[in-house]
Computed example of a mutant assay.
Amino acid sequence: MGLESAVSLYDQSTRGRAGERRAPGAGARPLRPHAAGDRSVGFAEVRDFHVEVARRADPALALVPLLVGGDPSKRGKVIAASADLRSRGLVPGMGMVEALDRAAEARWVPTDMRRAREQSGLLRAAVRREVGAVEIEGLAGFYLCAPADREEALAVARRLEARVAEQMGLPLRVGVAPARFAASLVAEDAGRSGARVVVAEDFEQYLLAQPIDRLPGAGPKTAARLAELGATDIPSLRRLGLDRLEVLLGNHGRSLWLLACGQDPKPLRVRRHPTTLSREESFAGDERDPGELGAVLVRLSERLEQALQRDGLRAGRIALRLTYADERTVTRSHSFDAPVSAVRELAVAARALLDRIDLGPDSVRRAGLVLRGLEISGAEDRQLDLF
């Protein structure tokens, strides 16, 4: 639908029976700009996580302009760039060759996903020890419930920052706000590390001062479309009204309206622990030897045991996933009689699953183990204490 047709449709939808025009948003459910409560939302993250992981692995990279990503000789992409390079327009997603051409002094290091996942797990464990339940955002971001009081929220943020610095040597930035999406904006305002809090009484002023393109989902194309409609900031976006935005942009328009009013359409869902854990290993060359596959499953079981111990968990179910050279995937699973966490139990179960697969003449490119039915160790004992 073109812009003129959409506006015409909007005009028809906002006229009463006598042809009189209703105010934009008339008939819509009344919305307050935001709702204050006794809780706020926090967002904590390690900015430039892949860069920080690479520098932690090799301290010689600490002061070097750094690009992390795919092999430039294989048309790899930038996954992360150090702050000095980002300020020059080198951003994730661009080709590595182009990035190196534009910054000849930069160092390229390949993405080490195994190390990144390991560090991500340690980071999750550190954050959970401080605040308990979190909602995970990527490898290094966490949403959490936070106090509405400014000083209490700052105290939580500083404890988180101190714990991550002490246990991992990584910088953490934390933002707290009355709405989920705003917490991540406030965290960005904190810089590379540190804490910022926007309380309910200051939220309206903070929100109205933000440019439209800081709203989630308001990319360059959407911002240009809104500018055509006369919305160049949050106040003018609100003035368009919910009805008009829904007619012109559909559900996306409704989401933007809610965000502009300080209400996040995406609810906060925190958990005390992950629902699954997985580890996988790829082979340099395609693999056919069951003995080598068995050795890989032992290594994966050892890494999963470490992950379970780190989070204080046990697993009720294990699955083996093999990916062949033609990308065909075969999966087998097993439920334990009682939840387990020891490497021996995991490895024995994984080997039994491998024995259930007829490998045939085809080569295996990747093997992975997935644990499900996770529960906190000692949960049964705590349940018995209730009776």
Rank of each mutant, 00 (worst) to 15 (best):
M1I: 13
L3P: 13
V7F: 11
D38V: 07
A44V: 12
R47N: 11
R56M: 08
P59H: 07
A62G: 00
V64R: 12
P65R: 10
V68R: 02
P72N: 08
K77R: 13
V78F: 11
V78Q: 09
A83F: 06
R88M: 14
V91T: 14
V91H: 12
V91P: 00
G95A: 15
G95R: 13
M96S: 06
V97I: 13
E98I: 10
D101T: 14
A104P: 15
A104F: 03
A106C: 08
T111N: 12
R117H: 08
R117D: 08
R124F: 00
A125L: 05
V127S: 06
R128M: 07
E130W: 01
V131G: 06
A133K: 03
G138Q: 05
L144G: 03
A146K: 04
R158M: 12
Q167W: 04
L172F: 08
A182Q: 01
L185C: 10
A190R: 09
G191I: 09
V198G: 13
Y206R: 06
L208G: 02
Q210G: 10
R214E: 03
P216N: 03
G217Q: 03
P220R: 15
T222M: 15
A223W: 02
L229Q: 11
I234T: 03
G241D: 03
L248D: 00
N251M: 03
N251A: 13
W257Y: 15
L258M: 13
L258I: 04
A260W: 04
G262M: 10
P265Q: 00
V270L: 05
E287W: 05
D289R: 12
G294Q: 06
V296Q: 00
E302W: 03
R303P: 00
L308F: 07
Q309K: 15
L313T: 05
R314Y: 01
R314F: 00
G316I: 09
L322P: 01
T331V: 12
R332C: 06
S335D: 01
P339V: 01
S341H: 13
A347W: 06
L353I: 10
R356V: 07
P361D: 15
G368K: 09
L369P: 01
L374D: 06
G378V: 13
D385I: 04
D385E: 15
